[in-house]
């Protein structure tokens, strides 16, 4: 565990907490894409299938449980909670997320480190995580009216990805035989997807204005 990895995990955790805060206290999920949240729930479910069979550390297991629990509970809130579900931008959140899942599954079947059930699903989760933010970014673009919490949520998620890249660079130079092209390329693609959002986020922060995306 290095400082970049820890910083990445903590920003990831913070992003989830910000989203839960918005849902729990304001009882609103306005501007949040259910499609993206469902994709994250699938990402964690397929990646952490090994939670019972491979033990790394108490930290890892605890974090896995937190990410699994929070992603599924966010989906539950947005779909079934009587107040929260009414604030969901159903008509705007129309990204067909099934069209992301199939190519990711095919790619995982073709390109992986090992052809085993767990490894293919692990790889699928990497590919899917890379593109899971897309419905959220499309929704932002459509509604254009972004509240602070939603903006912070996406900013923190992007920060998490940035720190993970630093973590890989650090591990590459400090650990022998640490080479994971699939993880790195998927992670890089994922981080690049945030670039545009980051640009406008910093612009609004610099000018001390409310975040607004161009049409």
């Amino acid at each position: 565990m290095n400082i970049f990895r820890l910083a990445g995990d903590m920003t990831h955790l913070a992003s989830v907490l910000v989203l839960l805060l918005k849902i729990h206290t304001i009882k609103s999920c306005a501007g949040v894409s259910l499609k993206t949240q469902e994709l994250y729930a699938i990402v964690f479910a397929t990646r952490y299938l090994d939670i019972l069979t491979s033990f790394v550390s108490i930290y890892n297991t605890l974090m896995k449980l937190i990410f699994l629990g929070s992603s599924f509970s966010i989906v539950w809130y947005m779909k079934y909670h009587k107040t929260v579900r009414r604030t969901y931008d159903r008509d705007q959140d129309t990204f067909r997320h099934w069209f992301l899942m199939l190519p990711c599954l095919l790619l995982a079947l073709l390109i992986h480190e090992k052809f085993t059930f767990f490894e293919v699903l692990w790889t699928f989760s990497l590919y899917l995580e890379a593109v899971a933010i897309l419905p959220q970014l499309v929704l932002l673009q459509r509604t254009r009216n972004i509240d602070n919490l939603t903006g912070q949520y996406i900013f923190l998620l992007g920060g998490y990805r940035g720190f993970y890249i630093l973590n890989w660079i650090y591990r590459y130079f400090t650990e022998p035989h640490y080479v994971h092209w699939i993880t790195w390329i998927a992670g890089l693609v994922q981080t690049l997807l945030y670039a545009d959002f980051f640009y406008y986020y910093f612009l609004s922060w610099k000018n001390n204005k409310k975040l607004q995306l161009p049409a």
Partner: peptide
């Protein structure tokens, strides 16, 4: 030396 795993990451 065995290959370092990325599976110890989240």
């Amino acid at each position: 030396v065995t290959k370092q795993s990325s599976h110890d990451e989240l």
